[in-house]
Amino acid sequence: MISVISQRSSLTFLVITVLTFLAASSAPTPLYQVYQDNLHFSAAMLTAIFGVYALSLLAALLTVGSLSDYLGRKPVIFAALLLNIVAMLLFINADSTVYLLAARALQGFATGTATAVLSATLLDTDRVRGPMLNSLAPMLGMASGGLGSGLLVEYAPRPTQLIYFILLGLMMLQAVYVWRLSETVSRIPGALKSLAPTLHVPSQARRALWLAMPLNVAVWALGGFFSSLAPSLVRVATGSTSHLIGGGLVAVVTLSGAVMIYSLRNRAADKVMRLSAVLMAIGVSLLLVAVQTASLWLFFVASVIAGFGFGGGFMGSVRSIVGLALPHERAGLMSAFYVLSYLAFCVPALVAGNLSRVFGLVVTTDGYAAVLILLAVGALGGQLWQGSARSRAAA
């Protein structure tokens, strides 16, 4: 039994560790322009460097996502920290795109491993606050990583290394401290068998999952765009060369998402999804206006509104499906959900990066935004139709 004091300490450590992993994941975003200027690579290579992270994260979710159920939480958290420590060392020494690709691939696998085990450990440690912390901590982590990296790049020395040295130090301390945690699960046989990639969506949750997908795809595709191409877009559209812009946009979107999650945490999932679809469509539409008018302030206003849709759409999608699975079906359902989500996170951004070589970044953004708006409007229509069907059934 975990004491109150040790439970509080454990929660604090776990939240800080989640923040560190997600901060590291968004730290390269403000540096992409620096890397492009120094290493002279294209927007397509930039999205490849971004995309390999998401694909590696997917691979981790599919293979080692449930490993901690068999080996225990602490060894898997420790292994994820070690992998990310090596990734930070690769970033620190990166002098070519090969280093950047390797660093992002390793970082993606480490983050995917950590996402699964840290989420489970938070729920093990506190069933009441765990779900909320699981939703808020990643958002706050991405915001702090993007904004903190942008500030260091703009005002501190050694812009391509300092943020990684700071993260490296935090991870080394966490790798030592993790062994002080109380283990929350017992070791059981079957670890090797659990590595086989599997996806399972319970039959009773399939309809809700597909109804949630249009909005969820729009949400994650928006996140992928802001994490990869948005800093370059601001530079092209407005001429701004500040490295704070890229990190600032990521911070604005994720912090707005966190505000939305906390504010609507007690609202029904269908109402949250309807509101989020509207906010997503409005925010992305304003983003198009910002591009055409080269308005930097409107970029940030649009990012706030789109961020509300981002956070609410994510929370509403999860809540609309997770209650439909039996306890032994939840892991499979959430694995399927996150696989679809991370495919939406990386594939559209990779396609956009390649299309930008042919059509230019502004025209590509117009098309990307149009697809997001159509998905949001389609999601709103689906939710309204579902609500109407429920009303007719009740009558």
Rank of each mutant, 00 (worst) to 15 (best):
T293H: 09
M280E: 13
V278C: 09
V304Y: 05
G316S: 07
S263G: 06
L264C: 12
S295H: 02
L279W: 05
G257H: 08
M260D: 00
M260H: 01
L264A: 13
V259Y: 03
A269I: 01
F310V: 05
W297N: 13
F314N: 15
M273W: 02
G257K: 08
L298S: 02
F314D: 06
V289Y: 03
V278W: 06
K271S: 14
G309Q: 07
G312S: 11
L255R: 00
L279G: 10
G307D: 08
G257M: 07
G283C: 05
R267L: 11
Q292H: 11
I305D: 05
F314R: 00
S276Y: 08
M260Q: 06
M280S: 14
L288S: 14
Y262R: 14
G309R: 04
S276D: 08
Q292Y: 04
L275I: 13
V289I: 15
L287G: 11
A269P: 02
M273R: 15
A306P: 09
D270M: 03
G257Y: 03
D270E: 12
T293Y: 03
L286M: 13
A294Q: 12
F300Q: 01
R265P: 00
L298D: 00
A268P: 03
V272F: 04
G283Y: 03
L286Q: 01
F314C: 06
G309T: 05
L296N: 00
L275C: 10
R274F: 03
A302T: 03
G257N: 09
A258I: 08
V301H: 00
G309D: 06
G313N: 00
G316N: 04
W297C: 01
G311S: 12
L279C: 12
V304L: 13
S303P: 03
Y262D: 04
V301W: 02
L287I: 08
